[in-house]
Design a protein around this nucleic acid. Structure first.
Length: 292
DNA sequence: GACACTACCTTGATTTTGCC
DNA sequence: GGCAAAATCAAGGTAGTGTC
């Protein structure tokens, strides 16, 4: 494994910070790289809209909106964007520079965060993940900061820290999620994946059924048999867990949290939340504040 | 897969609550 | 009292389920 690899972070003797070498937004249309290329920089390719094919070593993947791929240093890859819909991407490439100042290195951070440690301990050529929107936001903020004429190095390192922690957490939850699904019926697996990726917008059973090419009522029946709950119960449980997290860890007004979890109605959000937890959203947040 | 019935969800209007 | 946020209510729509 080369010194420039992400996965050399723990064994590398010198302490390093990430340093962006190249970044750009670009819309690809009817484009095909003539041949695969590799570079020392680690690359993140994030699909903002549309879709594109990425070939890495012997594998080939169709990246869709909201998905991103992190390609390690010196891994050959090739981009093909031949879909009728143009693909808009944000690419960020970074390498390493010697640690400066007192800002903790990635190695230091891994000592404090199990998910990050696990990510850096498991070498892999590339990492393909579905983003909830956190990674996109952080990448855009990072690019905006780099574009700034008075770019602040500490801000850049803070955003990189946020980015690495988000990727590590996403990878961890993706692994847990995947292992739970391993033995499930393939249709149920697709439905559950779709729900996990789209719970933040209004979802109809018909939408899910259409995506996996099944009759809606048939899907409902096999879902309940396999999962022990209806599709809507499953979706609600995910939404309430996300709402609890937002109530605990953010100052987002309760009226807006319903939008964050895909419920158009704040009234119904309050009703569902109370039904599931026994507390109204405001009481839930208030009790947490009191315990602090 | 289609249909019908029931239960539950969504939505808009209204009321209550808390803060200034 | 005025205002914004949160909670409640009722009607219509949608999901879940049994049956064919």
């Amino acid at each position: 494994m080369k010194e420039t690899s992400l996965y050399q972070t723990l064994s590398r003797e010198r302490e390093v910070h990430p340093e962006v070498t190249f970044y750009y937004f670009k819309q690809w249309s009817n484009y095909e790289m003539s041949e695969a290329h590799a570079h020392e920089a680690i690359e993140i390719m994030y699909v903002l809209s549309g879709k594109a094919q990425v070939e890495i070593e012997q594998d080939s993947f169709m990246l869709k909106e909201g998905q991103f791929i992190l390609i390690d240093s010196l891994i050959a890859h090739r981009l093909i964007a031949k879909s009728s819909i143009p693909c808009r991407m944000l690419n960020v490439e970074f390498t390493w520079k010697s640690k400066e100042g007192s800002f903790p290195s990635l190695k230091d951070l891994a000592k404090e965060n199990d998910n990050l440690l696990e990510l850096l301990k498991t070498p892999i050529s590339f990492l393909l993940l579905q983003d909830g929107n956190d990674i996109a936001t952080t990448l855009k903020r990072l690019v905006l900061e780099l574009d700034s004429k008075v770019s602040n190095p500490i801000m850049v390192q803070l955003m990189f820290t946020e980015l690495f922690l988000q990727i590590a957490t996403l990878k961890k939850s993706d692994a847990t999620f995947s292992s739970q699904l391993k033995n499930r019926n393939v249709y149920i697996k697709k439905a559950v994946e779709y729900i996990h990726h789209h719970y933040d917008r209004p979802l109809l059973i018909d939408d899910i059924a259409e995506v996996i090419h099944l009759n809606a009522s048939y899907l409902q029946r096999i879902f309940k048999t396999e999962m022990g709950c209806t599709i809507m119960q499953y979706l609600t449980s995910i939404r309430i867990e996300k709402a609890k997290m937002l109530l605990r860890n953010s100052v987002i007004p309760i009226t807006e949290i319903s939008e964050y979890i895909g419920l158009n109605s704040r009234q119904h959000f309050s009703y569902l939340f109370k039904k599931e937890t026994g507390y109204s959203p405001s009481k839930f947040r208030g009790d947490i504040e009191l315990k602090r």
